[in-house]
Structures are given as C-alpha cells and as structure tokens.
C-alpha cells in the first residue's frame, strides 16, 4: 500500500495524514532503533530515543527539505542528536567501535531511496571502512556513527586533538575517494 518514495511519505505526514505516519514509523523504526541501541547500549534508552526521534520527525515533517539530504539521513541525524544528549546526561559512552563494525551491513530497507542507498553505497562504504587502518576506522565510527566530536575522540582514544582531527579527516577523504572511484568505474 505504501510503496511510495521516502520524501513523499514525509510530505504525506506533513499534511496530517495518520496513515502516512504509520507507514513512516513501520518503514524506519528498525533503523532508528538500531542506531539508538548502538549508541546507548540499553533497550530502555534506545526505545525512548527512537520514539522521540520518530515523533519529532512527524511533528516537523513540514520543515523537511529534500534539497538538504535524504529522509534517512535527516532521521538518523535527529536520532543521533537525541542519543548524544541522552548519553551526555547519563554516563560516559561505553561503546566499542570495533564491535559496531563487527555487525553486518544493514539489511535492505523498505523505502526505494533507502534500498538504493543500502544496495549501492552502504555495502561499498562498509568494505572501504574495513580497509582503513585500525585507528582511522575507530575514529570514523566514533565520529560518524556514535557522533563524538574530535575532542571527545581524542579523550577517548587518549591522543592529541590534532591527531584525532587528522584521523577523522583522512578516513573521510579515503572513503570519499573509494565512493568516487566506484561511481566512475
């Protein structure tokens, strides 16, 4: 019934259509909950963050601008910010970046845009991250998935701030190169 594009679903929510909202929740709940759980490491906290993220997306569907990014990235950013706020209030972050990468790439999503992203870039990125030196891999997971700032990465890894910034920057440049090469082949 709801095999529509992600941004069309958000547009439906913005008009107040509760069925569009139900389909939106059904489509993204696993991804949102998965990110929240990865960051927080506990069921209750992840559930609270995932619920608030989906409700915020519903409340602010009208301000979503597809020119600024995909629905998935918009939603993941909301989730990540909420989880970061929760983590900073509660306790030091207890996530192991190597454990995050031990998981397989996400299963194909239900939205067309998400499915395309997963089938193309996510698999390539996962492969490219696996080839990074260990310290860069840890830095990019902590910054890109967990949402730590360069300063927090430096404290966590016990390295100078400049080194943390360099690791993040170099990892991002290598991943960009990997994606660009894939697209131009």
């Amino acid at each position: 019934m709801w095999s529509v594009a992600d941004d069309a679903l958000v547009a439906g929510m913005a008009t107040g259509d509760p069925d569009a909202a139900s389909a939106f929740v059904e489509r993204f709940q696993r991804r949102i909950y998965g990110l929240a759980y990865t960051m927080l490491g506990d069921v209750r906290g992840a559930e609270d963050v995932a619920q608030e993220a989906l409700l915020r997306a519903w409340r602010h569907a009208g301000v979503y601008d597809p020119r600024r990014g995909t629905v998935v990235s918009w939603l993941l950013t909301i989730t990540r910010n909420l989880a970061i706020d929760t983590m900073r209030v509660r306790r030091p972050i207890a996530i192991d970046p190597d454990a995050v990468l031990a998981w397989s790439p996400p299963a194909p999503g239900r939205g067309p845009a998400e499915a395309a992203l997963v089938s193309d870039d996510a698999g390539r990125l996962h492969q490219a991250i696996a080839t990074l030196p260990g310290e860069q891999r840890r830095a990019i997971v902590l910054a890109g998935i967990v949402g730590l700032s360069a300063r927090e990465v430096s404290e966590r890894e016990d390295i100078p701030l400049g080194t943390a910034k360099t690791r993040i920057r170099t990892a991002m440049q290598r991943l960009r190169l990997a994606l660009t090469e894939e697209h131009t082949e």
Partner: peptide, 30 residues
Amino acid sequence: EMAAVADGVSCLAPELEPPADFARRIDSTI
C-alpha cells in the same frame, strides 16, 4: 561529497527490531 559519505557512515549502524508494541504506541500518540 563529504556529506554523502557522512550519510552513508550513519547508515552503517545495524537495523534492530524494537520491542513489541513500539510502533503501535507511537501510532496511538500520533
């Protein structure tokens, strides 16, 4: 281009099944 990489990295977190009733509770709230 960097933003596209950042989006992709965010998506690498695993999908997990939320607790039972999760979607129904949000639906009721909405």
